[in-house]
Simulated scan of single mutants.
Amino acid sequence: MTRESGATDEGDAGHGWSRHDLAVDTGDGRLDDTDPTAETPLVTAVVTTYDRFEEATRAIESVLAQTYEPVEFIVVEDGTESGIEVWLTEQGHYSVRYVRHATNQGLAGARNTAIALASGDYVAFLDDDDSWKPERIERQVSALRSLSDGERENLGVVYCAVEAREDGRVTSVIPPENSGNLREAIARDGPSTLQSACLFSKRALLAVDGYDEELVSSVDHDIWLSLAVGGYSAVTVAEPLVVSYDTFADSMMTNTDERIEGVAQFVEKWRPTYVDWFGREEADRRLQRYFARVIARLAATKLVSGSFGEARRAIAVLFERSDQTSYNVATLALLTAEAAVKRFVPPALVRRLAAIRNR
């Protein structure tokens, strides 16, 4: 199979990372025989999964229901054997390219494997606990057609709004915020990427060396900042084309210590860049607020779930690492109220709270 942008079966060694050892590699990935053109480029759709059979099969089915052609489809199972390979065969989905890591490599490693295998000019990632509406890829490729050659050359990503659902009901719609030159957008609004909503230029992903496999968490914001440093831009689609199943139980299971470690690691990685962009004082303010928002949300979830020891740990770290006391208190209070509403209040009131917050 031909690889674009210099990638080979061994991965793109020239970019500092490569495809991991695969225990299984089946299917050729092509869902159709439509020839790519400049107006209808080949898109590689990717589902990465770790030991979540029910959620992953739902995600896979949403990719198979896409209205766009041509599509290549790769499923990367990251070190588990949950039954997806057997299910694909039983369902007759022989063309789906299923690969499995021999050992767990983490989300960044799974995505890097997919990039190395991808034949498409564009790569669309789907987390295993989300799904796409049928027009997701079609609408995003349509947005590409409105760009000039120069704009397309500088494009890093097209991304759309996300519809959050709880128990089958829509609780909120999260809009894409960063538009245009990503560095300028981040300076204006802060980094704002939405999981499972991004259609990336594969050329841009290769140019920034793919995903950082050393990070414990925050890999989505990390690739966002890498694209910003690379001078790439973002195009937004206002329509909610991705569904996030916003279950409180999933948030409750987050490992507190790993999350704190990962966010702190991310902050320190990007501190020199922020100092270069904004100066030391403003960089400290922005990074402290980023850390506060993420850790306050973690603390709020643990507090509302009754995991008081973990909540105390997160709150202690929050105030140790940030001297913006008023901001920390206000953020923690707001996110605790939001977490409580999400767990105990009917979805209609959750939607009203989200609408007030987003004004």
Rank of each mutant, 00 (worst) to 15 (best):
E4W: 02
T8L: 04
T8A: 06
E10D: 15
G14E: 10
W17P: 00
R19T: 13
L22T: 07
G29M: 09
L31Q: 08
D35M: 08
P36L: 05
P41Q: 08
P41T: 07
T44K: 08
V46C: 14
V46N: 04
Y50V: 10
A56Y: 03
T57W: 03
A59L: 08
E61L: 08
S62K: 05
Y68C: 08
Y68W: 05
E69A: 14
V75E: 07
V76L: 11
D78I: 04
T80W: 06
I84P: 04
W87S: 07
L88F: 11
E90R: 10
E90I: 01
A102I: 12
N104M: 01
G106F: 06
A110C: 01
I115M: 11
I115G: 01
L117T: 03
A118N: 04
A118G: 10
G120F: 08
L126D: 01
L126F: 07
V141N: 06
V141D: 05
N154F: 03
G156P: 07
Y159F: 15
C160T: 15
R165S: 06
D167T: 12
N178D: 14
G180E: 09
R183L: 12
A185M: 09
S196T: 06
A197N: 07
L199R: 10
R203C: 01
V208C: 09
V208L: 03
Y211H: 13
Y211T: 03
D212V: 06
E214Q: 14
E214Y: 02
V216S: 03
S217L: 00
S218T: 00
W224L: 14
A228V: 13
V229P: 00
G230I: 00
V235L: 05
T236R: 11
T236H: 12
V237Q: 03
V237T: 13
P240A: 11
M252P: 00
T254Y: 03
N255S: 14
T256H: 03
D257R: 15
G262V: 07
V263D: 12
V263L: 08
Q265R: 12
K269S: 06
K269Q: 14
T273A: 14
Y274N: 01
D276W: 05
D276Y: 05
F278E: 05
R286G: 05
Q288E: 13
L298V: 09
K302N: 11
K302S: 10
S307N: 15
A311C: 03
I315V: 15
L318A: 02
Q324W: 02
T325I: 11
Y327R: 07
Y327A: 12
V329L: 12
L332R: 11
L332P: 10
A333E: 13
T336Y: 03
A337S: 12
E338N: 10
A339N: 01
K342D: 13
R343F: 06
R343A: 12
